[in-house]
Design a protein around this nucleic acid. Structure first.
Lengths: 237, 237
DNA sequence: AGACAAAAATGAACGTTGTTCATAAAATAA
DNA sequence: TTATTTTATGAACAACGTTCATTTTTGTCT
C-alpha cells in the first residue's frame, strides 16, 4: 500500500496559534549535502501540509509548487508524490481542512445562538457573521478553495463532497426552525438561496480583497438579505 | 507601435450563429511545409480570439494553450505574442467580450421590461432571469471569466474594470426605481446585495454544472431572493 | 529595376512547471 | 548473515509560457 492511499484524516484543523518558522522539518546534512535518508517520521505529512498551506496563504493557489514545498519540508520532490499522489490531492486535503474549520465555527455559532435563546433570524445572522469573519481572516486559503474547485474538471472524491455537504446542512438546520416553510422542498430551496446569497456577497467582496467596499458595507448587505428572507419567511408562518 | 498595443475594441461580440470549422485560417503550404509568410490579414486577430474562445468553451480556461491556438489560427507561436503580448491579455479580451454580451442582454431585458410597464419587482426578476439564462448557455466561458479574475494578482487594466462596473450599474438602475430606499448609500448596498446574491446562487449552480440541482430549483431560489428583497423594499416605501 | 532599411512572422531555445521512474538506501524477512 | 521488500531520491521527461536571433516581407530611396 502506498502512503498516499491511506484513509483521509478527520482531525480538527488548527488555523490559529501557528508559529512561523524557517523550515518545517530539518534535514540531516553533512558538508551541505543531504546524507542520511532514514524513513520519514509520521509527522512528515503534517509538515508538508503546513508548508503547502503557508505557500497558498502567502502566494495564492498558484504559489503551490512541488519543489519549494519539498525543500521547505526537508524532503525530495519525488517524496511529495509518494505521500500525496499529486498536488491536487495535497490541495484537496488543505481545502478539506478549511471546510472542517469553517464547519466547526458555524456549528459553534449556531449552538451558542440557540443556547442564548435567540430568534431564528438572529441565528442566521450569527451564522452569516461567522462566515464573513472566517473568510476575512483566511482570505487566500478560502479563495484557493474556491478557485481549485472551479478548475477541477473531474468529480472530486466522496469525502471531499461530504465536507462541502456538511456546511450546507447547518443552514438548513437554521432554516428548519423557522415558522412556516414546512414543505421539505421549499425549505431546501430557501436554505440554498440564503446560503448561496451570503456566499455570493462575501465572495464578491473577498475577490477584490475587501478593497472596493469596506467590511461594514459587506455586513450591511448580508443584513439586508438575511432580514429580507427572514421577514418573508416569518410572514408566511 | 506593436500590434498588441492597439486600443481595445468596443464592437459587440457574437456568441450565437457561429459555425464550427476545422481551421480558423488556412496557412499556405507546399509539400507539407508552411512556405508563404505574408503579412497577416487584419482578421487574424479575430481568428485567434475565436480559436481561443472555442478552446475555453470545450476544455476550460486551462485548455487555452499558446501552441494549439496558434496552429488552429494558422500562425506561429511567436505571433500570438506579437498580437496579444501574452495569454492573459488574450483571456482578458475574451472575458471583456463576455461582459459586453451580458451587458447588452441585461440592458435589453431592462428596457423591454420597462417598456412593458412592469413593476420594479418584475424588472429585477427579468434581469435575474436573463442572467441565469446567459450563464446557463455559456457555462464554460463564464466560469473561465470568474476563475481568471480570481487567479489574477495584479490590478487589471481600466477598460476591463469599466466593463465589470457597467454590469453593476444596470442593477443599480433597476433598484433606483423602487419606492423607498432614497438614501444613495443604502440604495447602493441594496443593489450590491441583490446582485451579489443572484450571482452567488447562479455561480453555485453552474460550479457543479447544474447537476446537483435542476435549473427549476435555481430559478426558484432566485425568485425567493428577489421577492424577499423586493418585498422588504416595497414595505419601506 | 536594384539596393538598402524598417517592420513583422517565425520557430528554436530557455526557464519552469508537474510528474515519472531507475537507482540506491533502509527496513524487514529468511 | 543474506535475501527480499519497501521507500526516499533526484535526474530526466514532457509540456507549458515566453523570448529573441534569424529570416522574410514590405516600404523607400536612387
Amino acid at each position: 500500500m502506498l502512503p498516499h492511499e491511506i484513509e483521509n484524516e478527520v482531525s480538527a484543523p488548527s488555523f490559529e496559534n501557528e508559529v512561523s518558522q524557517e523550515n518545517d522539518a530539518l534535514p540531516i546534512t553533512r558538508k551541505g549535502k543531504t546524507v542520511g535518508r532514514k524513513r520519514f517520521e509520521p509527522e512528515i505529512r503534517e509538515h508538508v501540509i503546513k508548508a503547502a498551506t503557508r505557500a497558498i496563504e502567502s502566494k495564492g493557489l498558484e504559489g503551490l509548487k512541488a519543489r519549494p514545498i519539498a525543500q521547505r519540508a526537508g524532503i525530495s520532490v519525488g517524496s511529495i508524490y509518494n505521500l500525496f499522489g499529486d498536488l491536487d490531492e495535497l490541495t484537496r486535503i488543505i481545502n478539506g481542512r478549511t471546510y472542517d474549520a469553517l464547519y466547526q465555527i458555524e456549528r459553534t455559532a449556531l449552538e451558542e445562538a440557540r443556547r442564548a435563546g435567540k430568534s431564528s433570524r438572529a441565528q442566521m445572522m450569527d451564522l452569516a457573521a461567522a462566515y464573513l469573519d472566517f473568510v476575512e481572516t483566511h482570505q487566500s486559503i478560502w479563495l484557493a478553495a474556491l478557485s481549485f474547485n472551479r478548475s477541477q474538471t473531474q468529480q472530486p472524491p466522496q469525502w471531499y463532497l461530504d465536507k462541502e455537504q456538511a456546511l450546507f446542512r447547518i443552514i438548513e438546520d437554521a432554516i428548519a426552525t423557522f415558522p412556516g416553510a414546512q414543505d421539505i422542498e421549499t425549505r431546501k430551496n430557501n436554505a440554498r438561496a440564503l446560503w448561496a446569497s451570503i456566499h455570493g456577497i462575501v465572495t464578491v467582496a473577498v475577490a477584490d480583497g475587501f478593497l472596493m467596499q469596506p467590511i461594514a458595507n459587506v455586513w450591511m448587505q448580508i443584513q439586508i438579505i438575511v432580514n429580507a428572507v427572514a421577514g418573508s419567511l416569518e410572514a408566511e408562518g
